[in-house]
């Protein structure tokens, strides 16, 4: 076989492999969507109908709203907390820097189910005022802060220090330099963290499951879970399950359209 043919074959096989795996990844979402919108008539023919979405209860949409508010607050807290920390970790040399980084990474090494229970216990015993909506916000903020931290670290590392130095030499103080030069330049990188946290917190399930009992707050994924257990695979459950997935997908696609994959690489992407 000629070298050229060999190369073409290997490239074709490579694409086929990626497409195969990506199909598997897309399988659950596509099937859920299929169940939600494809209706089989009594005569056996199939049509597309969005009727299932009208059968979703009012209560579910309320929970979506609760979810969205929790996610937005989580994002706000995480950005406010993680961006300064990432800035310090990248820009300044100090003792115990590695240790601090590991400390802030701790969440990553503890399975969510254990962490969820630990949080519930602490809410019962120490942070009684957090039993409720804010309990979710605090739990998600702590659990997802790492993502904001990692993406911000990548963004600050990729920023050539020459721009900040130029600003200082042109007469801008530390704060002015940060707000006028640093922040606008790392903005898209920090947005990557925002998108990840938004998507993960909108769909978080296991921590929510543990928190929902004591806090008496139910989020949309929990509603989906209990509907699956009680109503099974009815079209309206499938419709519920697609709502936040499609919202998340829209967020990701919009982000990628504006900024590409550049700022996600090295944080959660290769």
């Amino acid at each position: 076989m000629s070298r050229r043919m060999h190369e073409r074959l290997s490239s074709t096989l490579s694409y086929l492999y990626l497409i195969l795996i990506c199909t598997a990844i897309l399988l659950p979402l596509s099937i859920t969507l299929y169940r939600a919108v494809v209706v089989t008539r009594p005569d056996g023919s199939m049509t597309i109908s969005f009727q299932s979405y009208t059968m979703i209860s009012e209560a579910f949409w309320d929970k979506v709203l609760v979810n969205v508010s929790i996610s937005l607050l989580t994002v706000a807290i995480d950005v406010a907390v993680a961006v300064p920390a990432a800035y310090a970790l990248v820009k300044y040399e100090f003792k115990a820097k590695r240790l601090l980084f590991t400390y802030l990474n701790g969440v990553w090494y503890v399975p969510g189910i254990s962490y969820g229970l630990a949080l519930v216990l602490s809410y019962y015993f120490v942070y009684k005022f957090l039993l409720g909506f804010w309990g979710f916000v605090v739990a998600y903020s702590t659990g997802f802060m790492l993502l904001a931290l990692l993406t911000a670290i990548v963004a600050f590392r990729n920023l050539d220090p020459v721009y900040e130095e130029a600003a200082r030499c042109l007469g801008a103080g530390r704060l002015k330099t940060f707000f006028k030069v640093t922040l606008p330049l790392v903005g898209p990188g920090i947005t990557a963290g925002v998108v990840l946290i938004l998507v993960l917190s909108l769909n978080e399930f296991i921590t929510a499951l543990l928190l929902s009992g004591p806090t008496r707050v139910k989020t949309a994924p929990l509603q989906v879970f209990s509907d699956i257990r009680h109503a099974g695979i009815q079209p309206f459950v499938a419709a519920e399950a697609t709502v936040l997935q499609l919202v998340s997908l829209a967020i990701v696609v919009l982000y990628l359209k504006f900024f590409g994959t550049k700022y996600l690489r090295g944080a959660i992407m290769i």
């Binding site: 659950p28 769909n203 399930f205 499938a238 998340s248 990628l256």
Partner: peptide, 25 residues
Amino acid sequence: ADVFRAILIIPLFGELYIAYGLLYL
């Protein structure tokens, strides 16, 4: 390449949806 990268984000939406999709399958 970026399309493949983007598709890799979808599983992050959560185990619940994966479970439900396969359940119906």
